[in-house]
Design a protein around this nucleic acid. Structure first.
Length: 109
DNA sequence: ACTTTGACGACTG
DNA sequence: GCAGTCGCCAAAG
């Protein structure tokens, strides 16, 4: 499918969703890491913006596996941040000082 | 086409 | 550790 390079799904959002969907359970990735995977090493901001627009895709996109640099939760201080943390913990992710242990669950570790 | 916003990242004081 | 600043990118109005 999608033999042609250009499809109507080549939006930045779709690309981010595809990458986030590929994040294995029990593992986490940073915005910068996701940005690099989608082809924009410095689009961390844009990635966060895209994830915020997940909306109905939240069921198919494990956005909770995406955290800020150093495993810090950008949503910290919001209700969604609490949910994210809870979900990660439910997957067996180890938290240290309110941060995700990237040394253990990092996408590259 | 321009301005503003946003779930970022890294550096400096 | 915290507050302030700059740079980066994409989308919406």
């Amino acid at each position: 499918m999608n033999g042609g390079a250009a499809s109507k799904d080549d939006g930045f959002f779709e690309r981010v969703y595809a990458v986030v969907r590929r994040i294995p359970r029990g593992r986490v990735a940073t915005y910068g890491q996701v940005a690099a995977l989608v082809g924009v090493p410095r689009g961390a901001r844009a990635v966060g913006w895209a994830l915020g627009g997940v909306g109905r895709r939240e069921a198919s996109v494990p956005w909770h596996r995406v955290v800020g640099a150093n495993g810090r939760i950008s949503l910290d201080g919001r209700a969604s941040g609490l949910v994210q943390r809870k979900r990660l913990r439910a997957e067996g992710v180890r938290f240290v000082s309110g941060r995700v242990d990237l040394s253990r669950h990092g996408l590259t570790s």
